[in-house]
Design a binder for these strands. Structure first.
Lengths: 223, 223
DNA sequence: CGCGAGCTTGACGTTGTTCAACTAGAGTGG
DNA sequence: CCACTCTAGTTGAACAACGTCAAGCTCGCG
């Protein structure tokens, strides 16, 4: 289903700064693409040609490495991906992969750059977006250096519940192994920690199905 | 010693995008301030009123927390500090403290914002700057999640040698405790790791004096 | 029905932290 | 000038947290 950017309900916030003409220009130059689970949207270190916007579905943003992967975050609709390639290297510094069926709008980076050079409000909005990314990364650095596995898992579950699914019950969109890559722990410890939370009555879970029972306790554990 | 921004040898890269008039405007509105060791330049969570530029000396960028501190990086001349407060919260998301005598230029954030709304090239340069910060944070996330203490300490020493002091011999600008906060290890392990490197002939050290002897081995350890 | 990927469990080993005690050096007041 | 104190640094031993390994299990799918 084709959507014009001017009427897209899931567009990123920075599009609010565009004029009618600019929105039309973006609409004309964008491609809407559907990725299936497991397909690569952005490949780390490749030359940046496009900026991507998630219309629907969930993706994982991750750093690839010979021995050990690292998932930075799981994000969904209205996410803007690839803006961090707007530096002198012009390369993506992470990979993005669909973890379910995902609709993405792909816009040539030159179109975006061109609009930025003519529309300061849009540039400022991009700056705001980048600063949000920096905030997230600062939280991640804190999360990795100051929290134990219980705390990291609790925070992860609350994050899924609050930010991604907006519900106390949800289906984990990723495997145990990927949960491990997202929380920086061994996959065995993902299992053990989830079991522990269940035995303490904080959650109910079966396979990927999760229900948050005791939000307050999880919140305290996650600090 | 008063310097005009147009002739400042240590100014940040984004100033290259300013017109003569804009440089004059910044020069007229900036304050040059000297901070002594231990003095706070930016306080985390305070309302952002200024952007800071380091003219000389070293600062530590850190996140404060009740029980455990976290140093993000040590930076020196030409660093731009506080741009990440250009988001809707308008608060600094970290603290910056002088670790030696530091000369700083302080510019009102409204002056910077005003120039950004009139000069797209400057905004784009700020975007580039922010993307460099993001790259650094991505490296930090990787560093924290994938490297052991030996590897982290080796990387830190090489970073001081290559980036900050540009010399095989240097004097550590921070205490063992702060080294621990920067590498996310116990201060006891900072001591042990340094001793270990010395016993293996990778470095020579006495107090804060360090000499890199076997760059190659340290580089391998740090990956 | 059997295969395989992902999941689960327990035992064990390693890494790194914590604790407690000790040392060295710098600053202070008598 | 010498005791005194205070902080930073150092050391070893005990301990906890977490990862690794190996084996067994489950469930969807051909």
């Amino acid at each position: 289903m084709y959507t014009t950017c001017s009427s897209c309900p899931n567009r990123s916030a920075c599009f609010d700064e565009l004029s009618i003409n600019e929105l039309t220009k973006v609409t004309e130059h964008k491609s809407e693409i559907t990725y299936k689970k497991g397909e690569t949207i952005i490949k780390q270190n490749s030359a940046a040609k496009h900026i991507y916007f998630v219309k629907s579905g969930l993706v994982k943003v991750h750093i690839e490495n010979e021995d050990k992967n690292l998932i930075l975050e799981v994000s969904g609709k209205s996410s803007m991906l690839g803006v961090t390639a707007l530096n002198h290297s012009k390369k993506y510094n992470f990979s993005v992969t669909a973890i379910e069926t995902v609709e993405v709008c792909e816009i040539n980076i030159d179109i975006i750059s061109n609009i930025m050079t003519n529309n300061v409000a849009f540039s400022l909005s991009i700056i705001n977006e980048l600063n949000t990314s920096i905030d997230k990364l600062l939280s991640k650095v804190f999360y990795l250096s100051h929290k134990n596995i219980q705390s990291r898992m609790a925070e992860l579950l609350l994050n899924f519940s609050d930010k991604i699914f907006e519900s106390k019950t949800f289906i984990l969109p990723i495997s145990r192994t990927e949960l491990a890559e997202l929380t920086n722990m061994a996959k065995e410890n993902v299992v053990r920690t989830l079991k522990d939370f269940e035995s303490k009555g904080y959650i109910k879970s079966k396979g990927r199905q999760v229900e948050i029972i005791d939000y307050k306790s999880l919140s305290e554990i996650s600090q």
